[in-house]
Design a protein around this nucleic acid. Sequence first.
DNA 1: TTGTAGGCGTTATCAC
DNA 2: GTGATAACGCCTACAA
Lengths: 343, 343
Amino acid sequence: MKRPTQMDVARLSGVSRATVSYVLNGQANDRVPKETRQRVLDAIAELGYAPDARAQSLRSGDTHTIGLIVPDIRNPHFWEHAEGVEQEARAAGYRLLLSDTALNSEYAEDIFKDLSRRRIDGLILMGAFIAQSEEARNTLTMLLKRRLPIVELIDHNVDYEVDFVVSDYRAATEEVMSYLLSLQHRRIGMIYGVATPALAIDRLQPYQEGLRAAGVPVDQELIATCGPTIEEGYQAALQLLSLPARPTALIAINDLLAVGVLRAARDLGLDVPTDLSLVGYDDIQIAQYLIPRLTTVSKDSIRVGREAVKQLLARIAEPDLPYQKLSIPPRLIIRESTGPAPV
Amino acid sequence: MKRPTQMDVARLSGVSRATVSYVLNGQANDRVPKETRQRVLDAIAELGYAPDARAQSLRSGDTHTIGLIVPDIRNPHFWEHAEGVEQEARAAGYRLLLSDTALNSEYAEDIFKDLSRRRIDGLILMGAFIAQSEEARNTLTMLLKRRLPIVELIDHNVDYEVDFVVSDYRAATEEVMSYLLSLQHRRIGMIYGVATPALAIDRLQPYQEGLRAAGVPVDQELIATCGPTIEEGYQAALQLLSLPARPTALIAINDLLAVGVLRAARDLGLDVPTDLSLVGYDDIQIAQYLIPRLTTVSKDSIRVGREAVKQLLARIAEPDLPYQKLSIPPRLIIRESTGPAPV
DNA sequence: TTGTAGGCGTTATCAC
DNA sequence: GTGATAACGCCTACAA
């Protein structure tokens, strides 16, 4: 039960391999007579023949494959991007080769090397922190030299030139700050749950500046740096909320952490938003169903994913394009987790 | 800046292509002198040469690629499986080719065809409902005839022979039922949010049987069939909870739907668990952080994913193995969303 | 110890 | 209109 090849089809239909190829590639109309054509098609159907993509690819050069590297499969935020990526890639006839770095930069090098060997047509990188280790960076640099089209999603705080699609949270965070300040919050904390310090700088900086602009000193004690899991967000929140002078508002740099914060507040007997206001980021699917519904900064993740693929395809088609930066402005969605500061 | 080939390496190091290949494949130890070997390695490093996986694959037959088909990227449940799949596949040197059917069986045929052309080494199918349409089934059948190793995850309610790893929810659901009944619940409803009717039969049947065994008639009105999104779960719950004789307990066939139920209860001013007990399935990551913490049936999704890959690799290595069925028993985790029936 | 040659399955270029 | 033939990059049996 070996897989049939073009040769088998040719034999069965009594023509040469070339003819089969012509029929397959649509050039048959003017060259191959209808009858022959039909015989070939019948043979294909009978054998269940399907051309070997590896051979096609070897010959043509393209693999119609896009590498997708995700830092952490378990964070819903990434899947929402992934969905957009998948939709757009599929529509263009591309498939996704998925890798998870598991936030572990040691894996990254392996992944890059492997993708390189597979001769993928392009690469989508979610989160620049993937290329942390020396070796990973070197491998990535090599891919860039080879002019592998690469698009970065989410962050772009690296020194190499690639296309990227980001949602710059700066403006939105300024909005968050003036919103919270207008509600009379003065002790505003931040759950800075990042895999890499530089990661959410677009949230940290405007946060600090917003405070300063309002004449509120930045209190380092109110900035809890922790890892990116819910549990870590939960623990960080417990700590912040147990402070003698407890914050009246908290900004979590993503919604997953915010879920942990909600839980921590409840465990301490604090009501959100009466005792504590909470703002998240990303607007993951469940955000609007949480109790209370989460006020968050929404970024239309699916669209970001789609745009990334569009950029990638554009560069695949035209490698010499100038590098593109697309910034999709997120917006603050006020729901129920924020309210006036307690008196 | 074309990619270097083995030939380029050979030229640069002044040896033949074969020698390069020997060095690469480790057969160099006894054949190629150390010095020549080093020259080749240097050339490889200098050129940044990496073998072309397509060519290797064309020659060797295997692609070291596993297809992963997910019914709905946005459901966290699938991603937790995916994480296990990814871990185990990576460890064995395989990559994942990801496709999302978007719960749309029309896509399925395309995907199967494409994967077939790509000559993947194996396929992991999450949820049997993927093969709904006639064409999709035919294509799948063809793959099976070709003896493509396939492992099914989550469900196995189809008529073809494949390996599968399932979590049979039957026993756990019986446990759920006796637990709820012991709490004096009699009006127990079900949020049956499925893409395909047969999908969660392992939850529906024991639910009905459990009721009957306790002498409680099955009330069709309490079984809300809806789609698999949170919003649909939310709407279904609103409806069920607005019934004149409202259920005192609800079983949602997955945790995502349960999030919608929680929200619906709150919107109707119902307290969980005082007024309503709620049980979900899957134990997704956030389940234990929800308010209230969700009582759910946990299935160790990561492990299920890993086992699936193990089975797949076993079959790839030994195609004539008898078909395997692995059932990983889920267990009921009682948290805070369930309590005694209101009097 | 190293080099040569054939073949994996395609497609495209030529002759016929 | 159709049929050989070369080439994509690699691996390996075999020859030198």
